[in-house]
């Protein structure tokens, strides 16, 4: 059965898009057919990780929302762009990076119901195993829509007081929306921290399972979004942690 997974963080800069891209890569590596939707229309960025340029984008999520194309026409096959031995397939529905188009959608809005229909349709039409929704940070009605229709919600936070407070709000809302499964990912953890202690405290605080506690890593910063970390560094502790998270998602 296909699964819809929302990847969310209350605050920006948690590594949400990077995590989404890596989850997609690891699922596809094992043979799954995965589609990633960039719903961060205000500040799109995940296309960079898949090496997709503006000039390569035939259609975007914006075009679908303006009824210029179908949702499947906005999907780009990025499997061959990330390297590695990928047995499955990765499709990406990017948000437009044209300043005029971002401004237009911010100014005019869009039919949120269409976004709802698009998520549902793309799973069937592209025969997906997984639909990953890269959400906008924080909470708004569009994000709540993604969370409400998801089978799994992955919540990313850093071990930081501001993240802890905001995440509590997200978890509370997700529980009220009866999301069937929630998994937390603690990202960018300083090496001085006791990772088992961090995991235990987060699980106790939110009553949600922690899929992985990932270390802060210079290699991630050095990669600078020029590729998918788990493909470039398959034996790194971050990749091992992401694999554990993916196992939780597959269960």
């Amino acid at each position: 059965m296909s699964k819809i997974i929302s990847i969310h963080s209350f605050r920006g800069g948690t590594g949400k898009s990077n995590t989404t891209a890596n989850i997609a890569a690891l699922l596809a590596k094992d043979g799954a057919r995965v589609c990633v939707v960039d719903t961060d229309i205000n500040s799109p960025g995940i296309h960079v990780l898949f090496n997709l340029d503006d000039s390569d984008m035939v259609h975007s999520l914006n075009d679908y929302l303006w009824k210029k194309c179908t949702i499947e026409e906005a999907a780009h096959d990025v499997t061959g762009r990330i390297g590695g031995d990928i047995k499955g397939q990765i499709l990406l529905i990017p948000s437009s990076i044209k300043p005029g188009e971002i401004a237009r959608i911010l100014r005019d809005g869009y039919d949120v119901g269409l976004l709802n229909d698009g998520f549902r349709d793309v799973v069937d039409k592209l025969k997906l195993d997984y639909l990953l929704i890269d959400t906008h940070p924080g909470l708004n009605d569009e994000t709540l829509l993604s969370i409400a229709i998801s089978n799994i919600l992955v919540i990313i936070l850093r071990p930081d007081s501001q993240d802890y407070q905001g995440t509590a709000v997200t978890v509370d809302v997700a529980k009220k929306l009866d999301v069937p499964k929630m998994v937390m990912l603690v990202n960018k953890t300083p090496s001085a921290f006791d990772f088992d202690d961090v995991r235990e405290r987060v699980e106790q605080t939110y009553d949600v399972k922690v899929g992985a506690v990932l270390p802060h890593a210079d290699e991630m910063m050095t990669l600078a979004s020029s590729g998918i970390f788990s493909i470039q560094f398959p034996d790194h502790p971050i990749t091992k942690g992401l694999q554990k998270l993916v196992e939780q998602i597959k269960k």
Partner: peptide, 11 residues
């Protein structure tokens, strides 16, 4: 459908 209305995101 979880809302069929159009609204500005900036609202």
């Amino acid at each position: 459908r979880l809302s069929a209305m159009t609204r500005p995101l900036t609202r």
